[in-house]
Simulated assay, not measured.
Amino acid sequence: MVNTTSSAPLDVAGVRTSTRQIRSTPGYRAFTIANFGVLVLVGALTLYPFLNLAARAFSAEAAISAGEVFVWPVGFNTTTLLSVVEQEMFWLNYRNTIVYTVVATVIAMALTTTFAYVLSKKHLKGRAFLIGLALFTMFFSGGLIPNYMLITGLGFKNTMWAIVLPQAINVFNLLIMKSFFENFPAELEEAAAIDGLSTYGILFRIVLPLSKAVIATMVLFYAVAFWNSWFPAFLFMDEPSLYPVTVFLRNIIAGASGTGEGLSDSAVQIGANIKAVTTILTVLPIVCLYPFIQKYFVSGVMLGSVKG
């Protein structure tokens, strides 16, 4: 008779023994050591610029100019840092940056999410035209002067909306979210529709709770972009009390180099470490935020890039 029984169980002990034998070979040990060394080298090369930046922020100008600063401050100096943070305008502009970033990110996420969800529906009439319209803006823009005239004509000059609305939808982020929603299981939405949920109910109660990875990624993208943005404010705002902190720090750098209107005598005298100090002050909040959403970052991008 033909034996119809299933194959023999996996010999777990044999697999473990074989694995131990492989790990004990000279080739495997050499590979492990080489792999460890490469990872340490890559980590050191990645970390060095940040350590050097922090060291420059707290080093004496003479030591920086002489090239003596590497990963540890030389001639510990906090004059530059204090001359920046002691100014009341700095904290006012810092508050402006937080407000602009939060409001702009919320609006951008609302518009991008809803637009991407609509574009992910292949049965939508006019879908190709809407996608083409979005892609058109990636390659062509109205130009600086027409944009300035438009913002001024709408009455947005010297307001937060001059920063928020023109950058409300980033097409790259839109395409990532559209691809993610296209890969979303249609069966879940169909079951929710049978249960009586409306389109908005499906989006807010089914789709978005299962899209935390891509949402966290888009929040990070938008927040970083709005936090670091300075040119729209520099172009559309005339009142220093409305500036974001990036424009404030740009003016300090310009004043320190003798080409701009210095904000104080001490700020104008800032020398070689001003760029390091301003960079540290600007990126610190984003660096503190990133670890909390880093676990969603790679998975969100990869999920949204399965299909174009």
Results as ranks from 00 to 15, higher is better:
residue 122 K to W: 11
residue 166 P to T: 13
residue 171 V to G: 05
residue 63 A to Y: 02
residue 299 S to G: 01
residue 47 L to I: 10
residue 25 T to N: 13
residue 180 F to D: 11
residue 174 L to H: 07
residue 180 F to N: 09
residue 280 I to C: 09
residue 85 V to A: 01
residue 126 G to R: 00
residue 255 G to Y: 05
residue 40 V to P: 10
residue 294 Q to T: 00
residue 231 F to E: 07
residue 19 T to Y: 14
residue 75 G to C: 03
residue 261 E to Y: 07
residue 55 A to W: 00
residue 272 A to T: 06
residue 240 P to I: 14
residue 194 I to L: 13
residue 209 P to F: 11
residue 207 V to K: 01
residue 282 T to E: 12
residue 104 A to M: 07
residue 124 L to Q: 08
residue 232 P to N: 15
residue 62 A to Q: 08
residue 52 N to Y: 00
residue 199 T to C: 04
residue 254 A to M: 02
residue 123 H to N: 15
residue 168 A to N: 00
residue 142 G to N: 00
residue 123 H to A: 15
residue 123 H to S: 15
residue 243 Y to Q: 15
residue 23 R to H: 10
residue 94 Y to L: 14
residue 275 K to H: 08
residue 77 N to K: 07
residue 204 F to D: 10
residue 61 E to S: 12
residue 303 L to N: 12
residue 7 S to M: 13
residue 44 A to C: 08
residue 95 R to K: 15
residue 169 I to D: 07
residue 306 V to N: 09
residue 307 K to W: 11
residue 241 S to H: 15
residue 188 L to Q: 07
residue 34 A to P: 04
residue 256 A to Y: 05
residue 42 V to H: 03
residue 23 R to I: 10
residue 117 Y to K: 11
residue 164 V to R: 01
residue 11 D to A: 13
residue 72 W to P: 11
residue 143 G to D: 00
residue 75 G to P: 07
residue 227 W to R: 12
residue 146 P to V: 00
residue 140 F to H: 01
